[in-house]
Structure formats: structure tokens, C-alpha cells
């Protein structure tokens, strides 16, 4: 009996399920996700839907920022693109389950255009270019949506007689799309493309020297990130009765970036998961908890102090993101009772 788990082939080393705990974790996680509506009741189920929507979006940004190292401040605009395309198609009578992938593709197309500056720019400059793109797209949204409200017709949200926009069907539809997109993202990280992205992130000159087409990789990283943002926008249109451009502003993009950086850039699934849980859902839960506990203005200030403090604290003590804490804990469990 070997003292630990040893891999004999490279295939085993990069497999999704490398340790028994991965099987157990995946099975339990899936079971929990499926049973969530029973466990927590309708409100938290819908909060979970909103969580999943932003998780899909954050996974996308985590590919762009975390894997490929391209900072983007236009992610909310891409999400808006997806939402508006969905609204437009739904209005035309297209079923929402068809509209959502199309939304993803159209946001991907837009993201490809946004990737053009990244061919020449890095870091601070790229952040600036995407900031400009965010403002420009926001302006275009304002032109095409002067009422700041585009209703999503309910007729588009049916599948075989079941209304998908509410309750359990909404949850399971969102969950299914989320799981598929996350599995795709995980596989992307393990593929040649994913490794090429990491190479570009870590040293683009070296990456080019070993034969990676840096332009191509950067463009793809943006495009895939945009696809996920578009999916999130489409899901948001499913979840919501209507959309307006003030939901896709720069504040949204900054929040997205925050979720990636805080959860752990490059840790596509768990990093994004923790980021969304802390920043977005955390804010909502903090408000719900604090508003019931203490005087309103103290609660109002406190939720910003707690949230910000947690974000900064985690990054300082755990710059690789929250996920590193969990990984150490997992290692500890795996090796227990020995220390190494």
C-alpha cells in the first residue's frame, strides 16, 4: 500500500477526478445542488439561481483574466449584450432555450472585437481599453433601450408546456446550463488551449518562442469569456421579467473583476464559486442579516466595512484567493493523521 496517491501516467495527472475525494466531492456537490430546493425553500433557491447566473459570468471572466491574464473591465457590457440579444429574439418569438446559446455566441462575437486591443496591449493599458469599451457599449445600450426597460415575453419561456421562468423549472434549467458550462470550462483549462493561455499569461514572449500563436490565444480567451458572459446575460433574461441597461454598467464590471480576483484568478470553478458567493450573494445575505439585526444606517455602513474588510483580508493573507485555504484544508484531510 503506497503512502499516498501516486500517478503513473500523465493522463491520470490531469484527469478531472484525480483522487477518491474528487468522486465523493462531485457526487455530494451534485446531490446538494439537486436537493437544494428541498433543503432551503423557495427564496434561497431563487437566490441560488441568481448566484448561478453570476457564477457562469464569473467563470467566463476567470478564463479571460485568470487563465490568459487579460484584465477586462467590460464584462458586464458583454453580459448586457447577451441579455439584449435574448430579449430581442424572445420578442421575435424564438424560444428562450434557443435564444440563450445565440446570446452567448453574439456576446462572443462582440468580445472578439474587444480582443483586438489586446493584440498590442497588456496590463494597465488593456484595462483601460476595456474600460473604454464598457462605456461605449453602455452608450449604445442607452440608445437602443431609451426606456431602460425591455420586457421578456413569457411566451418565449415555455418548454413543452412547462414555464421555465419561475420556481423549480427555473432552478433546474439554470443549474443544467451552469453545470454544462462549468464542465466545459474545466476541460478548457486542461486542454492545449488552456495551457497555451497560462503560458501567455505567465510569459508571453516565451510563449511565442515555443510556438504559441499569442494573438490567437488572446483572442480566443476573450471570445470564450464573452461567450460565458453572454450565457449569463441570457440566463438573466430568463430569470427576470425584463432587463434595462443600468444592470450592465461599469459598477457591474468592477464587481465581476472583484469576484474573480477575490475568489482566485486561474482557479476557474472554485475560485469563481467563492468569489460570487462572497461578493455578490454575500452582500445580499449581509443586508438581509444586518437589516434585521441593527439600526438601518449602522447596517448600511457595516455591510460595506465587512465585505471590503473580508476581501482585502483574504487577498493579503491568501493572495491566491480563498480557494487556497480550501485546498490546504483538503490536503490536510487527505494526509491526516500525518502532517505530510
Amino acid at each position: 500500500m503506497p503512502a499516498g496517491v501516486f500517478k503513473e501516467t500523465y493522463g491520470e495527472e490531469i484527469a478531472i477526478f484525480r483522487y477518491p475525494i474528487h468522486y465523493a466531492g462531485a457526487a455530494l456537490g451534485l446531490l446538494f445542488a439537486l436537493m437544494l430546493p428541498i433543503l432551503v425553500g423557495p427564496y434561497y433557491m431563487l437566490l441560488a439561481v441568481s448566484f448561478l447566473i453570476f457564477l457562469v459570468g464569473t467563470v467566463g471572466l476567470n478564463i479571460t483574466v485568470g487563465l490568459a491574464g487579460l484584465i477586462s473591465l467590460a464584462h458586464a457590457a458583454l453580459m448586457g449584450m447577451g441579455a439584449y440579444v435574448t430579449a430581442f429574439l424572445a420578442e421575435k418569438g424564438v424560444n428562450i432555450l434557443v435564444a440563450i446559446p445565440v446570446a452567448g455566441l453574439s456576446a462572443a462575437a462582440l468580445a472578439f472585437i474587444l480582443a483586438l486591443p489586446s493584440f498590442r496591449l497588456k496590463g494597465y493599458y488593456l484595462a483601460m481599453a476595456s474600460l473604454a469599451a464598457q462605456f461605449i457599449i453602455e452608450y449604445i445600450f442607452a440608445l437602443i433601450d431609451p426606456d431602460q426597460y425591455v420586457p421578456i415575453p413569457d411566451e418565449a419561456k415555455y418548454l413543452g408546456g412547462i414555464y421555465l421562468g419561475r420556481g423549480l423549472p427555473l432552478y433546474y434549467t439554470t443549474l443544467a446550463i451552469t453545470i454544462v458550462s462549468i464542465l466545459t470550462a474545466v476541460n478548457l483549462g486542461r486542454s492545449i488551449l488552456g495551457r497555451a493561455m497560462k503560458a501567455v499569461r505567465d510569459n508571453d514572449v516565451a510563449a511565442e518562442v515555443v510556438g504559441i500563436n499569442v494573438y490567437y490565444v488572446k483572442a480566443i480567451a476573450f471570445t470564450i469569456g464573452g461567450f460565458y458572459a453572454g450565457l449569463a446575460g441570457g440566463l438573466y433574461a430568463l430569470y427576470s421579467s425584463g432587463i434595462g441597461w443600468e444592470g450592465f454598467t461599469l459598477e457591474g464590471s468592477i464587481e465581476y473583476l472583484g469576484m474573480v480576483l477575490i475568489g482566485g484568478p486561474g482557479r476557474i470553478v472554485w475560485g469563481s464559486f467563492l468569489g460570487v458567493l462572497l461578493v455578490r450573494t454575500g452582500w445580499t445575505l449581509l443586508e438581509s442579516t444586518l437589516a434585521d439585526l441593527i439600526v438601518s444606517y449602522v447596517a448600511a455602513a457595516l455591510k460595506y466595512l465587512i465585505l471590503g474588510g473580508m476581501i482585502a483580508g483574504f487577498i493579503i493573507f491568501e493572495p491566491e484567493g480563498l480557494i487556497a485555504v480550501l485546498r490546504r484544508f483538503k490536503e490536510y484531510l487527505r494526509l491526516w493523521p500525518y502532517s505530510y
Binding site: 423557495p42 427564496y43 441568481s50 438573466y236 427576470s240 445580499t284
Partner: peptide, 14 residues
């Protein structure tokens, strides 16, 4: 607006 929707659902369902 997204948070408004979350809270509205909290009001309604919880």
C-alpha cells in the same frame, strides 16, 4: 436592479 429583484423574491417567497 438585480439586487432589487433578489430582495423582492425574498419578500415574496421568504
Amino acid at each position: 436592479p438585480t439586487k432589487a429583484e433578489e430582495f423582492y423574491k425574498e419578500f415574496r417567497d421568504k
